[in-house]
């Protein structure tokens, strides 16, 4: 792919038309294009420093692949990813290592994400050591700051082993590890799905605080819209590898335009006794990316699909503030949700 000259933007990350293709074939037939499956397709998004961007979708929607592509852990077949003004889509693994200090990860499983033989201090110091920062007082200072930012007392926790920590404490260590290099972008893939309900709120507000105070951009991936609703500024809903709706949290939640977004929102269980929500109208589960339906990918499950257009022509993501890809978007009932 030829060099794509882009003006460095102020955005923490700028993603343009990113596509990830996996080959479903084995052996020689890998050479044939027809076996290639698009896991994610034409993804565009921009995250500003200090904001939290949420990506929602069911399993198989490609949200995890997107997170991997943005960290160089999945091969980008097409498109450009600019992190802090630097094009990274074409970098190989060795070149990525240099960029890593800019992009950090928080993983889903806090019980597996810490090396069982490392103390908390060593786990948090690990990225510093990997980046060649060896000066002891400096490492100590940075680790203590990161632990304090993750709301863990450095004196109490530095020399604990992961087996002595609760799930919430482990996830805080993981956050400290992600913050220690002062990155521009943190990617968190389902960071609270394995935690207890009471801990979730703390971890989420911690992530939000980190974004605000340190000016780091956060990409938060979750299948649980109620999680995203609480921390995100902007949100993108993915279905079968494509973004079907994108906008600010207030817009998307109060006034979903895409029927899939509406289905996801209505599926969230709620303790609100006054509004008896209706059960999801969606039947079945998303199809495999290899058997993508023609036209709008969502049409076989869509309650609003009623014409040939839905079945033959794929809608594009359109709009200015709130973007959606649907031929029959849900009408805006009132402009102001307040």
């Amino acid at each position: 792919m030829g060099a794509r000259v882009r003006k460095p933007t102020t955005a923490a990350i700028d993603v343009r038309d990113v596509t990830v293709v996996y080959s479903a074939a084995r052996g020689l037939s890998t050479l044939l294009k027809k076996h290639q499956v698009q896991i994610i397709q034409d993804i565009n998004l921009t995250i500003q420093p200090g904001t939290v961007f949420g990506v929602a979708g069911e399993s198989g929607s490609g949200k995890t692949t997107l997170a991997k592509a943005l960290t160089g852990l999945a091969p980008v077949s097409n498109g450009s990813i600019t992190i802090h003004g630097r094009e990274v889509a074409d970098l190989d693994q060795a070149e990525w290592r240099v960029v890593r200090s800019d992009v950090q990860l928080i993983f889903q499983d806090p019980y597996d994400s810490l090396n069982p033989r490392f103390t908390v201090f060593d786990s948090v110091a690990e990225p510093l050591r990997s980046q060649g920062i060896k000066d002891k007082p400096e490492v100590e200072r940075l680790v203590r700051t990161a632990l304090a930012d993750a709301e863990l007392d450095p004196d109490t926790f530095s020399y604990r082993m992961p087996s002595q920590l609760s799930g919430g404490e482990r996830q805080r260590v993981a956050i400290a590890r992600a913050l220690v290099l002062d990155p521009n972008l943190i990617i968190a893939d389902e960071p609270v799905s394995m935690l207890d309900v009471s801990t979730r709120g703390e971890i989420l507000s911690l992530i939000r605080k980190a974004a605000r105070n340190r000016g780091v951009a956060v990409l938060l991936v979750s299948h649980d819209l109620s999680v995203l609703e609480r921390v995100c500024d902007e949100i993108a809903v993915m279905y079968l590898g494509r973004i079907v709706e994108q906008g600010t949290v207030a817009d998307v939640f109060c006034q979903p335009r895409h029927p899939y977004t509406q289905a996801l929102i209505s599926a969230i269980p709620s303790v609100d006794q006054t509004s008896q929500r209706s059960r999801t109208t969606l039947q079945g589960e998303p199809p495999q990316p290899a058997q993508r339906p023609a036209g709008c990918s969502f049409h076989p499950r869509c309650p609003r699909c009623d014409d040939l257009k839905c079945r033959t022509v794929a809608p594009l993501l359109e709009g200015t503030e709130q973007m959606y890809a649907c031929w029959h978007p849900i009408e805006i009932v009132r402009k102001d949700p307040a």
């Binding site: 960290t71 597996d112 069982p116 990225p127 990997s130 980046q131």
Partner: peptide, 10 residues
């Protein structure tokens, strides 16, 4: 995951 985390840490 912790190995992935180490790789991601550079």
């Amino acid at each position: 995951t912790f190995v992935k985390a180490a790789i991601a840490g550079g």
